[in-house]
Design a protein around this nucleic acid. Structure first.
Lengths: 230, 230
DNA sequence: CCAACCGCTATACACACGAGTAGCCTCCTA
DNA sequence: TAGGAGGCTACTCGTGTGTATAGCGGTTGG
């Protein structure tokens, strides 16, 4: 149940319209507008879902489920660059914008999406490091979290700077975004930014000076557990 | 005139309260709440500023002006890493959150702030490249725009994931953010991410194939068109 | 002295929103 | 074909918002 195409009856239509409306206009979209988008009356929302909050929750769950499904479908589809397996269909665009909006507003779906992306990235990164494609990091999770934060954040900034974002043209927008981001990304990822290692080495020396390592807060850094004065 | 401390008379107090309220609660903060924060009545907003939109516009202008002032004050203060000359005072935190919110919502102040940051970054980057601190890019402006987008976006994501952001503890929040972002940033900037140049070279070859260069739309990519792996 | 002015408050109005209620209308079943 | 259950609509209510108007009180200039 609750897939996209099998039941177009009321509730599902309303839910999809809500997802689309939330993605297009933000989560302040009124129930009336959503109902109008679905071609039904406003009060129907209350009969199917108890409140707007419930509707939002169900939209979140549906979007997350569809994202996972879409991700699984496009797996082994050679991700040319990390975090770039972007959808090209209209539905994929709606999903993406919905998720970006959710992250933007600090919603639960956004947090879940980020955690999902981080877990996926850690796995992917570990594999890539093992295969020698990616240089290792002193804190793999911190690196992945940083990359996820930056990638998603850049998309959110782009989304904010495109107020008249048309969901129909989402693929075009993404294409344009990638066109102007691909070169800097690849340059940064292969050639770095700094010409020498002084900044990094200085920071590493500074961190080594302080006993508590702020970069690796939780996990024990390999085996040298015994700290100095205890 | 129009500095923070000299005139505490009504209008300025209200404007500052609006800035603080917008930063703390978002731009949907009601006029009554702003008035209450300023310790005055609600209708006063209308007498000083015609409407909420006008108030918002004046807040934007004030924030931008203060940001520029704060930036000028802290110039030559050795930016250890690009885009990290962050304020540590409470007022600076308010300014920063206000600007982040403005970028997030696609406001005019946000766009102006981004453009300001890009211009500043281009200048800084050119200088750093000339001094041999930073490796050159095939499209400096695209790289700066990319870095700005990513840096600001990462902060916005962090902001969204911290719903109970206390403006008083802003420096602590930023400190924590930098503590967990510093290592990945420095690693990425000095050691890159990819172990070899294949991805970049493939992309450059692909771009060289198509006549229209999507990454460098306007400017000609100087003279050394036929590049090679050094 | 006083009167015009300005900062400010209190109250009211129009509007949009989410929430809630009653009833029609269709389709499915026996 | 009769009955009933559920999808759906029209309407109403309370609330919160931005906007607007009338009026009070202190300050200042003639």
């Amino acid at each position: 149940m609750s897939t996209a195409q099998d039941d177009l009856t009321g509730r599902a239509r309303l839910r999809d319209a809500a997802i689309e409306g939330f993605a297009a206009q933000g989560f302040d979209e009124s129930l009336r507008a959503i109902a109008a988008r679905a071609g039904v009356s406003a009060g129907l929302v209350r009969h199917h879902f108890g409140s707007k909050e419930n509707l939002r929750a169900e939209c979140d769950a549906t979007v997350l489920e569809r994202y996972r499904k879409l991700k699984v479908d496009s797996i082994n589809a050679e991700p040319s660059v990390m975090f770039s397996q972007l959808p090209s269909s209209r539905e994929g665009g709606i999903l993406m914008v919905y998720i970006l909006r959710s992250v933007r507003d600090g919603g639960a779906a956004g947090r879940a999406f980020l955690e999902n992306l981080v877990a996926e990235g850690i796995e992917f990164s570990a594999d890539a490091v093992a295969r020698g494609l990616v240089v290792p990091s002193r804190n793999e999770e911190a690196r992945v979290r940083h990359l996820v934060r930056q990638s998603v954040g850049a998309l959110i900034v782009q989304l904010g700077m495109w107020p008249d974002l048309a969901l129909d043209d989402f693929e075009g927008v993404m294409e344009r975004f990638y066109a102007e981001s691909m070169l800097p990304t690849l340059e940064l990822y292969t050639e770095g930014l700094f010409a020498d290692r002084t900044y990094l080495d200085q920071y590493l020396a500074f961190v080594a000076g302080t006993e508590t390592t702020p970069a690796a807060p939780a996990e024990e850094t390999s085996s040298h557990h015994g700290k100095s004065k205890e």
